[in-house]
């Protein structure tokens, strides 16, 4: 049953790869030095997690591809990242809202993965959980602070929430890969995590004086690779350029 597990691992690794890349784009450009440093820490954690997830994916696949090969030599349709993490940074508010929505899902998902029947997956989840718990603490504090800050910051945060909300639903869609993982006790059913996510998000949005959008319409196509955003292709032209331009070089 190698194929679904490979698929499952690239989903985890591509999420952290793509989001880590996005967050790293802030380096040197954040609103204040302390935030610049904190964002870099988040990006560094995510890049580290990518190395573990994609490394294991390559191992499970058994075709000699390592984490770097998977990161730098696959095209858009082979990526399995959620549409949410592909979204551009926008302003700092949009970046932090995206981070919060992802962290709220990610932390809970990883917590469940710590009980995975596959000890390698459980071990990566355990290491990542420590990092992601802190990401969530920081991103929810920032969402609350800016939502309940000045009039301008409130308006911007509401706009960010409205802009990103259609990408929340995809995190909780279960498909046949998830079903295979559930059957083997490897991973939880994403749909089962929605309740806890909603409670957490509602609490934070209330404290932030933000209004949760009524419409739960969800864009899909990232985690299956069926239809990514246009943004991902542009990101890859930058991320993969050196590897693609000099395929015989080692760095």
């Amino acid at each position: 049953m190698t194929q679904p597990q490979f698929e499952f691992l690239t989903r985890l690794g591509d999420n952290t790869l793509v989001l880590g890349h996005r967050v790293s784009e802030w380096c040197g450009h954040a609103p204040v030095l302390e935030e610049d440093i904190a964002l870099a820490n988040t990006a560094l954690d995510l890049i580290g997690q990518t190395q573990l997830w994609l490394g294991l994916a390559g191992e499970v696949e058994g075709k000699g591809r390592d984490a770097d090969t998977l990161a730098f030599h696959r095209d858009v349709w082979d990526f399995r990242s959620l549409l949410l993490v592909e979204q551009p940074n926008g302003d700092f508010g949009q970046t932090m809202m995206r981070q919060f929505l992802f962290d709220a899902w990610h932390s809970n998902y990883l917590a469940q993965l710590m009980d995975s029947s596959d000890s390698r997956i459980a071990a990566i989840a355990e290491k990542s959980t420590k990092e992601v718990t802190y990401h969530l603490e920081r991103s929810s504090d920032t969402v609350i602070g800016l939502g309940d800050g000045t009039e301008e910051s409130h308006v911007r945060m509401q706009k960010a929430l409205d802009r990103l909300w259609p990408f929340v639903g995809e995190m909780f869609v279960s498909d046949e890969v998830d079903a295979a993982m559930v059957a083997e006790g490897i991973a939880p059913d994403p749909a089962s995590l929605r309740g806890e996510f909603d409670t957490l998000v509602n609490n934070v949005l209330t404290a932030a004086t933000l209004t949760r959008p009524q419409d739960d319409f969800a864009h899909k196509g990232g985690k299956t690779g069926g239809r990514h955003t246009e943004h991902l292709g542009h990101m890859l032209t930058q991320m993969q350029w050196l590897q693609r331009a000099y395929p015989d070089a080692s760095w």
């Binding site: 204040v32 440093i37 904190a38």
Partner: peptide
């Protein structure tokens, strides 16, 4: 620099315990 004590502790974690 931090807006309040909680953020000061978080910033300290990021700045001084890298």
């Amino acid at each position: 620099h931090a807006p309040d004590a909680e953020m000061a502790i978080k910033n300290a974690r990021d700045v001084y315990t890298r």
